[in-house]
């Protein structure tokens, strides 16, 4: 039915509220960046991807600081001939892993625990991402500093162990600070005990004797994390 120009056509009134909500949803819509889209595809969960990108130890200031520390480590390694990167990487990773998720760190931690995307999934996704990033930065810094392959890869096992220890303590004590302190403390003890036994500061990252105990510690700590983050049986 045609209507005269300037005349409001007959018929039901438009639902202005609904129209406005349609406009608002388009105007306010957030466009996820490439990293978030990639993570959502990889994790098959947009919620988990968004949670991953809010990881405190993956935010830009932390990333810049990590890159700087590894770069300085590479420069120091070249200058002094000591495997500074290899010695720094496990401690850095332990702190980053401990600060990935938890009460006091994640502002809405209490709320997150009532979400369909479980906090355990968030924790594991964040920890794996942080660990992978620190491992990649460490490998890059080792390659740049021209470290021998044995040294370059020698820190991966200790890094896994102290990161797992930091995470286990952080989840058990519900304190990222405790986790970071445990990880760094354990690594300092390992380095100093290696040095006192052999006289070489790099013993902890070059001696093969450390590899198996490190992997055993990592496995044990992973079990602790899985136990501590399980849903209690008494929930029902």
């Amino acid at each position: 039915m045609n209507s005269a120009p300037g005349r409001v056509p007959d018929g039901p009134e438009p639902d202005l509220e609904r129209v406005w909500l349609g406009v608002a949803s388009e105007v306010w819509r957030r466009r996820p960046g490439p990293c978030e889209r990639l993570a959502a595809r990889a994790l098959r969960s947009p919620g988990l991807a968004r949670a991953l990108l809010t990881t405190p130890s993956l935010l830009l200031p932390w990333l810049v600081a990590s890159v700087l520390v590894f770069a300085l480590g590479a420069v120091a390694s070249v200058g002094t001939g000591q495997p500074v990167v290899a010695l720094a990487a496990p401690a850095l990773a332990a702190v980053a892993v401990a600060y990935a998720y938890g009460p006091g760190l994640d502002p809405a931690w209490e709320l997150s625990r009532s979400m369909a995307v479980s906090d355990r999934s968030v924790l594991l996704a964040r920890v794996l991402a942080v660990f992978a990033l620190d491992a990649a930065l460490g490998l890059l810094a080792s390659a740049v500093s021209g470290a021998a392959a044995a040294v370059a890869f020698g820190w991966l096992a200790p890094m896994t162990a102290v990161s797992a220890l930091a995470l286990a303590v952080a989840t058990t004590a519900r304190s990222p600070n405790a986790g970071a302190a445990a990880g760094m403390g354990a690594w300092a003890i390992a380095v100093l005990s290696g040095q006192s036994a052999t006289g070489r500061v790099a013993e902890a990252v070059t001696g093969s004797a450390f590899v198996l105990p490190c992997l055993a510690l990592a496995a044990g700590c992973s079990v602790v994390v899985l136990v501590m983050t399980r849903t209690p049986k008494g929930l029902s």
């Binding site: 957030r30 919620g47 502002p107 809405a108 209490e110 709320l111 997150s112 979400m115 369909a116 995307v117």
Partner: peptide, 21 residues
């Protein structure tokens, strides 16, 4: 209620909509 200081209101509400699947 904890909140993310850098989030906008829409970011915040959207974040939890995604976590609620």
């Amino acid at each position: 209620l904890g909140y993310y200081p850098g989030f906008t209101v829409v970011d915040f509400v959207e974040y939890f909509a995604l976590l609620k699947e």
